[in-house]
Amino acid sequence: MCIKNILITGGAGFIGSNLALKLVKRGYQVTVLDNLSTQIHGEDPEKTSSLYLSIIDKVKFIKGTVTSKVDWELALAGQDAIIHYAAETGTGQSMYEVNKYVEVNINGTAIMLDLLVNSVHTVKKVIVASSRSIYGEGKYLCKDLGPVYPKQRESVDMDSGDFEVKYDGVGDLELVGTDEESKIHPSSVYGITKQNQEQMVMTVCPTIGVAGVAFRYQNVYGPGQSLKNPYTGILSIFSTQIKNGHGINIFEDGKESRDFVFIDDVVDATILGLENDNANNQVFNVGYGQAVDVMTVAKQLSEYYGIKVPITVSGNYRLGDIRHNYADLTKIKNLLGFTPKVSFDEGLQRFTNWVNTQAVHEDQYAKSIQEMKEKGLYK
């Protein structure tokens, strides 16, 4: 499969821009379609967004949106592959901006697929950014029942300070890595839209002779991550709070955990999916394969910045959040030879070193929480 020309939707974003730069170095011709959302890039992004400025002289850039058929038609011309990153992100925000998330994530993908089915094109492969959010709560082992997949947690339990997952009343569940065969049952609108994106691509593409690949990314972080966006990216949110000297409010009991995967590893995994035919028509987890709890994240960030701020475990929670999830990487290792190289400790040091070179941005996190409170989604 000869691939030279690549379209990256959302290619001015965090993952997309890093991927674009590495693909250019590898000799690919890269086109980026991006709307330069102010939530990610800030005001006047064409002058001030470091992500946009890092790629603008190295790629063909089209300012547009995936919700526009005209923009898609312009961007698709002559492309051999599409890497589809353009999406609204943020679990919490998705629960009250439902239409926007559906319009961009689902309908934007539908326009792409409709064009691939019904028009003449040269696209041979489509890679879609899926998400660990499609799993909802992760995979657990029960002594008596074996593998189980707990449902979304109940407010009545969390209101009383019980944040652990439950499965039909059974306790003592052991968290294990979530593999690609695990149950898909998202607990947020964002997760539902990512599930739809993935399933549409993996259903439609093979029927028209286009290879589909889906990467279920865990929590991606690293230098270049938006420090302006208060709706997603726990490391960025905490960093902005610390840099402003504000205290950190830890949700639940601080023991909730995530799988943090460094941006360089995500880029490398994605390029393997592009260049390796073993990836065709397959879905893969991309993570580090280790769970790190939120309290540890807050403490390590404060330590690396050398700034002490109050860290409060409040017992507050957001509807739609999961308790735990980390990736089983067996499949991507066996089929694509991918093993993450950057540990969380090394990655966090590289991330905080970069943040220390950046201007301190206004902390708008309280505004995002207030929005959730007004909608009854923050308890």
Rank of each mutant, 00 (worst) to 15 (best):
K4V: 04
K25G: 08
L33G: 04
D34G: 06
L36K: 07
H41K: 08
T48L: 08
I56L: 07
I56C: 07
K58D: 04
F61G: 01
G64N: 03
G64I: 02
G64V: 02
T67A: 05
E73W: 04
L74D: 13
E88V: 07
Y101R: 06
E103M: 07
G108L: 14
L116V: 10
S119H: 14
H121Y: 09
R132A: 14
S133Q: 15
L141M: 13
V148K: 04
E154F: 12
V165P: 13
V165A: 11
D172P: 07
D172Y: 13
K183D: 14
K183F: 11
V189P: 13
T193V: 10
V201T: 13
I208R: 09
G209R: 08
Y217A: 05
V220H: 03
Y231H: 11
F238E: 02
T240Y: 04
K243T: 04
K243Y: 07
F251K: 05
E252W: 11
D253C: 00
G254W: 01
D259F: 07
D264V: 02
N278L: 08
Q282I: 03
G289M: 00
T296A: 00
V297S: 00
V297I: 05
G306S: 01
K308N: 08
G320F: 04
I322T: 13
I322A: 12
A327W: 02
K333M: 02
P340I: 00
K341S: 10
Q349H: 09
Q358I: 08
A359T: 11
Q364K: 15
K379W: 12
